[in-house]
Design a protein around this nucleic acid. Structure first.
Length: 491
RNA sequence: GGCGCUAUGGUCAAGAGGCUAAGACGUCGCCCUCUCAAGGCGAAAUCAUGGGUUCGAUUCCCAUUAGCGCUACCA
């Protein structure tokens, strides 16, 4: 056989909105698969019956696709090692469980929650590590019968050997050692017959021939447990790679308190999938070059697990915005429109049912936002002045601009000359302003600023030579006149 | 509490015994400019602490501290 095919997997639990951290795990796996010509498997770990939902699974798949990731095997697409949803693999797990039971490597445990909790508290009180002490380890068949007769539903625990050093060979952390004495006999099948994560994950990864398990660091401490299962079942271990966690600004785990944490929230805010991918890739990985902005293709070419950092990374929204803004500016006009329009509609600035002339005008307006936004939801914000003819001065400073003694002369000339302009385009408007400067012998600021404030109520905004043609002479003059009246300026 | 992981500017990070310790975001300044952006240029800012090892430690080892994770019939 030729060299072993690389097989990676992403195995999310469908228990809520798809988290940005999960997206990064998926991305790292996907990049490895695509770079090395391997296979990507998508498996759904839905053994938590209470919290799992089909809706959440759909959400995850939609988010992955939106981010530009696909999978070669898994839910929806199938594959030779399916099914790919854990709750549909129960008979498979049962086979191995029976085997472990028969071999005495696992045993039934009849302890109740209360008993377990009491044991935990007692150990804690003694200052010892709370773990299962093996009460049901050596129950006789008769005792088991009796317990069953009492109506107790047993769980199944793995017999964990004492005094063993378990070594996890990790791609990013090297060898990590654990003492088996720190691990109690843990539950592999819950009393309802559903396997636990640490058990099912081993059987699935093994049966699906996963060669590289790349996942978040929170699973590192669970890996020795899983290794014990590999050993008990006689399965070959995959290569592990535990990537660090993404933290919030206050260095605690990302949560709602840190703002948007789900992929979907970023999608709704109008972030670009390539922006998110780019940002996520740079969280914990650094290229050989000094390149910061990447397309997905470039990420595939340059990505390598060898350059994955060990330390946790803080999610920096400023940097995400910068990266996303870079990608926004690289968009074609067409693509920029596609991103912007939904946000314009949401803001009520357009309906999508405008006539052709209005559509053309909207397009011109929207495209001016390109250099001014980092993500879609900002588009209507920076464009709002095109859609509201009624406004107040933003502050006293802005209002004061119109009280300058030079303002009447500027306005007089503007009202005389602007209507004569033809065509009303950027260069002509610019030329007119130059002319006003010359005639009034005023500096640029003394000419532009009063016009800007009168036109928008604001001291900042797009270039006047850009705004005036877009607003048209009539609206421009009307808005200025209204402001001047409000400010009590006559000329 | 036990075990584990981690520790370079505010943030992402390169660096792998000897370097003026890269680069990016952010911040600040300058240029461009009517303003705000975009773009260009520049500046400030980092090796957690204490012990070793070594001629020499940001780099290797140990401890401390801090952060995080695991310690569930969650994943």
């Amino acid at each position: 056989m030729a060299k072993e095919e690389i097989r990676v997997r992403f195995a999310p639990s469908p228990t809520g909105p798809f988290h940005i951290g999960g997206a990064r795990s998926a991305l790292f796996n996907w990049l490895v698969a695509r770079k090395l010509g391997g296979k990507m498997v998508l498996r759904i770990e839905d053994t938590d019956l209470k919290r799992s939902s089909r809706e959440s699974e759909e959400n995850i798949k939609a988010a992955l696709k939106w981010l530009g990731m696909d999978w070669d095997e898994g839910v929806d697409v199938g594959g030779p090692y399916g099914p790919y949803r854990q709750t549909e693999r129960l008979d498979i797990y049962k086979k191995y469980t029976d085997q472990l039971l028969a071999e005495g490597k696992a045993y039934y445990c009849f302890c109740t929650d209360e008993e377990l909790e009491a044991e935990r508290q007692a150990l804690l009180k003694e200052g010892k590590m709370p773990r299962y002490m093996g009460k049901c380890r050596n129950l006789t068949p008769e005792q088991q019968e009796q317990l069953r007769a009492e109506g107790r539903k047993p769980s199944i625990r793995l017999r964990v050997p004492a005094d063993e050093t378990i070594v996890v060979h990790d791609l990013v952390r090297g060898d990590v050692e654990f003492d088996s004495n720190g691990i109690g006999d843990f539950v592999i099948v819950k009393s309802d017959g559903i396997p636990t994560y640490n058990y099912a994950v081993v059987i699935d990864d093994s049966l699906m021939h996963i060669t590289h398990v790349i996942r978040a660091e929170e699973h590192l401490s669970n890996t020795p447990r899983q290794l014990l299962v590999y050993e008990a079942l006689g399965f070959k271990q995959p290569v592990f790679g535990h990537i660090s966690l993404i933290l919030g600004k206050d260095h605690t785990k990302m949560s709602k308190r840190h703002g948007a944490t789900s992929v979907d929230q970023y999608r709704q805010l109008g972030y670009l999938p390539e922006g998110i991918d780019n940002f996520l890739a740079l969280l914990g990985w650094a290229p050989n070059s000094e390149q910061e902005i990447f397309t997905m293709q470039e990420l595939i070419q340059q990505f390598s697990m060898e350059h994955v950092a060990k330390n946790p990374a803080v999610f920096d929204l400023d940097k995400l915005n910068w990266i996303n803004g870079k990608h926004m500016r690289q968009l074609s006009d067409e693509d920029f429109m596609t991103v912007a329009v939904p946000h314009m509609e949401k803001a009520g600035f357009m309906t999508g049912k405008e006539d052709t002339a209005k559509q053309a005008w909207l397009r011109r307006v929207i495209l001016t936002a390109k250099n001014h936004v980092d993500f879609g939801a900002q588009v209507p914000q920076v464009l709002s002045m095109y859609f509201t003819d009624e406004f107040d001065f933003e502050n006293a400073e802005a209002a004061a601009v119109l009280q300058e003694a030079t303002v009447p002369a500027v306005m007089k000339m503007l009202f005389e000359e602007l209507p004569k302009l033809s065509p009303v385009d950027g260069p002509n408007v610019k030329a007119l302003f130059k002319k006003i400067q010359k005639t009034t012998k005023l500096g640029g600021k003394a000419v532009f600023m009063p016009i800007r404030v009168a036109l928008t109520g604001n001291q900042h905004g797009p270039e006047l030579a850009e705004m005036v043609p877009l607003l048209g002479i009539e609206r421009t003059l009307k808005r200025i006149q209204d402001s001047l009246t409000k400010a009590g300026i006559k000329f």
